[in-house]
Computed example of a mutant assay.
Amino acid sequence: MKRGLGNRGLLEFLFEELIALCLVFLVTGCNSSSYTPPPDTLAPSAPFGLITTMVSATQINLAWTASADNVGVTGYIVERCQGAGCSSFAPIATPNVTTFSDTGLTASTSYSYRVRATDAAGNLSSFSSTSTATTSSSDTAAPTAPANLTATAASSGQINLAWTASTDNVGVTGYRVERCQGAGCSNFAQIAAPTTSAFNDTGLTASTSYSYRVRAIDAAGNLSTFSLTVTTTTMATPDTTPPSAPTNLTATAASATQINLSWTVSTDNVGVTGYRVERCQGAGCSNFAQIAAPTTSAFNDTGLTASTSYSYRVRAIDAAGNLSTFSLTVTTTT
């Protein structure tokens, strides 16, 4: 303390010293190199919306939505494992942007990916959801075209197809069958993808023409050229209507060994193809047996026994095999 200072001088001196100390504190305290900010312990948010896209047989591209951080995201860690549902993830890249192209992969192989963010303090976010993609095949060779395509009408509603199998450098996995309606049509549409060299096309319309062509496909999705086109027509609707029964049957003895039959022809919705003549011996007999199948409305029964009675009946048949009811029975004696 300075000597000779009065009370007033002492107060002024102390005030000046206080001001000086405050100035020193303000200057050195605010600019001191020993000051340490509080540590950043807050992790970034997890990346989301991870998308994996197959680019080729050896490359898959990744993209995701950026993470957020209280200070700032400095980059990402991309992890990968092989196979869908795998769990043996390992880091493969540390991009500082929200995309990554993974190259040098194996063809026809599935890879799963997940991503997390990091900040300057080394805080790691939780992982994004996992996304899986499969590389394409390195096979670019198409199968040979199916050969010897045939189309056979099996019924009024079905056509059966068959062809010679295609070949491929790796292996044919199936076929694509296309159809359009009518001979010479061009508006083909795929109707089936069988794995064998045959296909039965059902649910078709009776008496209708259909055209077909077939091509092969392999595991890499390579498609062959088309087979030759074949056309066939479904059968008509099945005829289930029988002819009418023959009428006016007559039996006339022509000799001791022959009886001549005639009748009025039957009618049919499609057409009568013939008749079935049955005979038994005696008036009132019932043990009829077929003896002839004429295609006209007359028949001469020969080789009979003299002075013997014979009974006859006739029914008609059409192309579908439908049989009419029998005519009335007639009896005569040689």
Rank of each mutant, 00 (worst) to 15 (best):
F15M: 10
T237F: 14
A141S: 15
P246C: 09
S309Y: 08
S307C: 01
T99F: 12
E178D: 15
T132D: 02
E16Q: 11
L149Y: 04
T164F: 05
T130L: 06
P37C: 08
S197G: 01
S125P: 04
A63K: 08
T233A: 14
A316T: 05
D239R: 05
A154P: 00
L50N: 15
D301I: 04
T150W: 07
Q258V: 06
P44I: 14
S136A: 14
T150A: 13
Y312E: 12
S266G: 06
V214L: 09
V265D: 07
T144K: 04
T250E: 03
S108I: 09
R313S: 10
T334Y: 02
R176L: 15
L5Q: 13
S128W: 06
V71I: 13
A183C: 09
Y212S: 10
Q82T: 15
P39N: 14
L18K: 12
V97Y: 02
N222T: 05
S108W: 03
S126Q: 11
T252D: 06
V27T: 08
N70S: 14
A90Y: 03
T53W: 00
T325G: 15
G6M: 09
F299Q: 06
M235H: 09
L21E: 14
C81A: 01
L10K: 15
A147M: 07
T195C: 08
E16R: 12
G274Q: 10
N222R: 05
L10Q: 10
T130W: 03
P91Y: 00
A289Y: 09
A219F: 11
K2C: 07
C86L: 12
A153L: 00
P242Y: 04
I291K: 03
Y175T: 12
F127I: 01
A189L: 05
P95E: 00
R313P: 11
P146Q: 04
S110D: 14
T109Y: 07
C22E: 13
V71Y: 13
T99M: 13
S311N: 11
F127N: 03
I60K: 01
A316Y: 09
A141M: 09
A43M: 09
A145R: 07
V24W: 06
V97F: 00
G6E: 12
P238E: 10
S286Q: 08
T225Q: 01
Q59V: 10
R213S: 11
P95D: 04
A283C: 04
